[in-house]
């Protein structure tokens, strides 16, 4: 009996916690479907509670209306189709038409505006380019180094490994300022290179892969050498395949960190929207539309957050393992 009470208390606490955690996700999704009015008042036209989906009653896109308001010339042209009407009446008829064509359901409008008000596709593409380049370069640099540190004997090995451990102490964000000075001196700010270079080496990746390679039996490598494989091809054809689980964990860690990173892009990208990564683009979108376009803003947020969320929900075990595994140095 006491067990049951304790158990239900635990579940109650866990559920309450879960509700608080999920709250902003709920509203992000819900707001991305609603009109500005519904977001600000929580009420749909007619005063009913907007709920999750809102009423989806038509809303007018003011920019569209402004751009297409009937002009003198159009009224002249339309005169032939409406014989006997005054210009005022024709104007009103035309305006009605424009209003109808400029109205749409909030959900649709928010998500289309997310792509039209700012080059969101470009931001997403930049995000993909940057995160993937970073991960690939990190692997290309870290795997050979990790292999050498784990499996080859050479003078200075322990010293080099202790340097790796030393670098492990320094968070790259902490030394952002001198890195920025170097890149600025080289004229590299506002380039993809600036977004990628500071992350090309992951000392953490080297450390992780070294620890993993230590567990790979030497016989495997000796056999490959017996077959006449070069050390170089041993890395890519023998070690790499055995390292897939560790690489996957590291990949999740790396991609999540750099897809979400806002600070570094903010430092080195100033002004050129063609180079904005998703978080930076989102921040500028917010600035440009200050307080006015919550629905589209939330649609952008959903689109930026969704890829990782979906991947996470599909492979939660791997993600949690990946992040914990990589967290536990």
């Amino acid at each position: 009996m006491s067990y049951d009470i304790g158990n239900s208390l635990k579940h109650t606490a866990l559920i309450l916690g879960a509700l608080v955690v999920i709250l902003p996700f709920y509203f992000m999704l819900s707001y991305s479907l609603q009109s500005q009015r519904e977001i600000e008042t929580g009420l749909s036209p007619g005063g009913v509670n907007a709920g999750f989906f809102g009423s989806q009653s038509l809303v007018l896109d003011k920019d569209c209306l402004q751009a297409n308001t009937p002009e003198r010339k159009e009224i002249e042209v339309a005169k032939t189709s409406y014989p006997g009407k005054t210009e005022r009446e024709i104007y009103n008829i035309l305006l009605k038409e424009v209003e109808t064509s400029c109205s749409s359901r909030p959900a649709l409008m928010n998500y289309s505006m997310a792509f039209t008000k700012a080059p969101l596709l470009r931001y997403l593409l930049n995000g993909v380019i940057v995160t993937l380049s970073i991960f690939l370069i990190q692997v290309v640099v870290a795997l050979p180094a990790a292999y050498a540190l784990a499996k080859l004997r050479f003078l200075g090995r322990d010293f080099i490994f202790s340097i790796v451990l030393l670098c492990l102490l320094v968070p790259v964000h902490a030394i952002a300022l001198p890195l920025y000075v170097i890149l600025a001196k080289l004229g590299l700010t506002n380039t993809y290179a600036a977004l990628i270079i500071p992350w090309t080496i992951s000392v953490f990746g080297i450390f992780l892969m070294r620890q993993f390679f230590l567990t790979v039996p030497d016989d495997l490598i000796d056999a490959a050498r017996m077959d006449g494989m070069s050390e170089f091809s041993i890395i890519w054809r023998v070690m790499l395949p055995t390292a897939v689980p560790a690489l996957l964990a590291f990949g999740i860690f790396s991609v999540v960190a750099h897809w979400n990173d806002y600070f570094w892009p903010r430092v080195v990208i100033t002004g050129d929207p063609n180079l904005f990564t998703p978080p930076l683009g989102m921040r500028v979108f917010k600035q440009d539309t200050e307080g006015d376009l919550h629905g589209p803003m939330m649609a952008v947020a959903v689109i930026v957050v969704a890829p990782l969320m979906i991947a996470f929900l599909m492979a939660q075990k791997r993600f949690i393992e990946g992040i914990t595994f990589t967290g536990m140095k």
């Binding site: 999540v256 806002y262 930026v304 957050v305 993600f319 992040i323």
Partner: peptide, 8 residues
Amino acid sequence: VMATLMAM
């Protein structure tokens, strides 16, 4: 932990 902090 996974969600883009800027968005949230």
